[in-house]
Design a protein around this nucleic acid. Structure first.
Length: 577
RNA sequence: GCGGCCGCAGUCUAGUCUGGUAGGACGCGGGCCUUCCGAGCCCGUUGCCCGGGUUCAAAUCCCGGCGGCCGCACCA
């Protein structure tokens, strides 16, 4: 076999309706894929599992905001100015390249964080040319990854397809904070499409121009930045690959528990918690423990908004360690930015243990106005910032600074008022676990793929088809019974497929290929005693169960509550009738 | 798209005519009291849609925009 696992998987995936390259009849377009019938189910099940962790268990609120945003949002978030990749183009054939990736491929060096000048120098110095045609390359320029469009007819207003779902949450902070009953910490999740106009997507479903994110934004009081139920995943063991190991010549990842990592100061508690959760989630999907590591971002690769960031990476045959989840400490960056740009106060409020009393000069505008004319509002503003613990400090006039000049404010211009300060306002800090669904789905495919059989072996609950029902022979009496069973199982909630084409062996193989965990077969005995066989995908062993027990047996099998031998009498075809 | 009405806390609303930077109710948070499904009391918290103009000063007056509702038109 010359083809690698990636190609084998994509071949089965395309043939059996998991993934299709998009727009195929028109020649396709890089960076876009369709989910076929089975892929769509698989995707849904992964999303549902994620929801179970984040919405059900963590109790986070799920929202769903527009994928197209007005420009103000992305001006405030910094994406208009910062969400750029370095780009170069071949002068001969016109092909575009990501300059840093191209240099990395050609020279085998790390270009993360290099400036445009540095990239240009490298290209010139090493005479890097177009890998396609050998042509000369243009000067490296910045290219914004957001898709822009117009909102409304004609020129309209500039809009951007969202490059991440997160902003939709930040800009609704006020309402969400209220709905969280104004208590921190709280979390909000969003699952949806995001768009990035990648310069040259090349790795199949790993780098898409339209992809699905599952993101959580968890808001913390910066002074109490801890997950309350930390113990839930604290004893989870995982592989850590922190900055210092990455910088060593022979640096290695090492294994420890989430709790130990926090105690050793390797990673802060909330990020560690979500790393633990993520590992559990990924192993649920059939990705083995040793193919999952938590890698800390190097300072130069962190996004413009992140203080610390850890990726959860999954090891793939062809692509090596691939980031499937990023858990970033976005601090108060986003809320601050949106507060500033929108003028809305996106702070949280915290009551002090002891309210304190202060005294303030309350400006009398009808005195200030005539006296200071156009400076009156500034004087008033300056007065409002004065605060004293003792009212006598405010008696007999005050001095304020306006436009760099000191101004005497006579006492008749203000009134000393007592004010109770009962709390403080602050911007919450955000920890953001962000999952790339499409990449995760590919990892699930690869790690559940048996290259020998060319077949998937998904965890039973995850299989896009849960049960196949076959008549042993294409005989009307068996067909009728099998169809009826399939129908009843379907009504009971199972994802069922009925199949009577070809030989029974062929049908088992077909079911195996797409990872159907259990096949139910109607045979001669069924017609006599209402029993059927259940066949296990991985062992190909069979048991006989009575039709009355079938639903229950399958349910327990799919949930992993029982093994095959627990649900029926052993059966082997040679002993059967 | 056209016409009308309207934009004050999360919600409902006073104030707008007669410019001087906002008051209430419910809600929400904390406490007390109670104790099983929106009881009471105390404390706290939250706001004039945006931009421009007039003015020393705009929730208030003028212009523009945006948004909502209703009607008509158009359309999946």
């Amino acid at each position: 076999m010359t083809e690698d696992v990636y190609e084998a998987i994509m071949e089965v995936a395309r043939r059996r309706g998991i993934l299709f390259p998009a727009f195929r009849i028109y020649g396709g377009a890089r960076g876009f894929y369709d989910y076929g019938p089975l892929g769509a189910v698989l995707r849904r099940k992964i999303v549902d599992r994620w929801r179970w962790y984040y919405v059900h268990r963590e109790g986070f609120m799920e929202v769903d905001s527009p994928t197209l945003g007005i420009s103000a949002v992305y001006e405030a978030s910094g994406h208009v100015d910062h969400f750029m990749d370095p780009m170069t183009q071949c002068k001969e054939c016109g092909e575009f390249y990501r300059a840093d990736h191209l240099i990395e491929e050609e020279l085998g060096i790390d270009c993360e964080g290099k400036s445009l000048e540095e990239l240009n120098e490298l290209i010139e110095k090493h005479d890097i040319r177009c890998p396609e045609c050998g042509g000369e390359l243009t000067e490296v320029t910045e290219f914004n990854l957001m898709f822009s469009t117009n909102i409304g007819p004609k020129e309209g207003r500039t809009g951007y397809l969202r490059p991440e779902t997160a902003q939709g949450i930040f800009i609704q902070f006020k309402d969400l904070y209220r709905l969280a009953r104004q208590r921190l910490p709280f979390g909000v999740v969003q699952i949806g499409r995001a768009y990035r106009n990648e310069i040259s997507p090349r790795q199949g479903v790993i780098r898409l121009r339209e992809f699905t994110q599952m993101e959580a934004e968890v808001f913390f009081d910066p002074e109490e930045k801890e997950v309350p139920h930390f113990d839930r995943y604290a004893d989870e063991e995982l592989y850590f690959y922190p900055i210092e190991e990455q910088l060593k010549e022979d640096g290695e990842m090492y294994r420890m528990t989430v709790r130990e990592a926090v105690e050793e100061g390797l990673v802060e508690q909330p990020i560690a918690y979500f790393l633990g959760l993520t590992k559990r989630f990924l192993t649920d999907l059939g990705i083995p423990d040793e193919a999952i590591r938590s890698r800390q971002h190097l300072p130069e690769e962190r996004a413009h908004y992140a203080r610390d960031c850890w990726d959860v990476e999954v090891k793939l045959e062809r692509f090596g360690w691939v980031e499937v989840v990023g858990i970033a400490d976005r601090t108060d960056y986003d809320l601050r930015k949106h507060s500033k740009h929108s003028g809305e106060d996106l702070r949280a409020f915290k009551e002090l243990d002891e309210p304190k009393v202060v005294y303030r000069p309350k400006p009398k505008m009808n005195e200030l106005g005539p006296r200071f004319k156009s400076d009156a509002p500034k004087v008033a503003e300056a007065l409002r910032e004065i605060e004293a613990e003792d009212p006598s400090e405010l008696e007999g006039g005050l001095e304020v600074e306006v436009n760099g000049e000191k101004i005497e404010v006579p006492p008749e211009c203000y009134e000393v008022v007592e004010e109770k300060v009962s709390g403080i306002r602050f911007y919450p800090h955000v920890i953001e676990p962000s999952y790339g669904l499409d990449r995760i789905l590919y990892c699930v495919l690869e790690h559940n793929f048996d290259p020998e059989k060319g077949a998937f072996k998904f965890p039973a609950w995850l299989a896009p088809i849960e049960v196949c029902v076959f008549p042993l022979l294409k005989r009307d009496d068996m067909i009728d019974v099998a169809r009826k069973i399939a129908d009843e199982l379907s009504e009971a909630g199972f994802i069922v497929e009925y199949d009577d084409s070809g030989s029974i062996g062929r049908r088992y193989a077909r079911a195996d290929e797409i990872g159907v965990p259990y096949c139910v077969t109607v045979d001669h005995d069924t017609l006599d005693d209402d029993t059927v066989t259940i066949r296990d995908r991985d062992t190909t062993e069979q048991v006989r169960v009575h039709l009355d027990d079938l639903e229950d047996a399958l349910r327990r099998l799919l949930l992993g509550e029982a093994n095959l031998e627990d649900v029926g009498e052993p059966f082997s075809p040679s002993q059967g009738s």
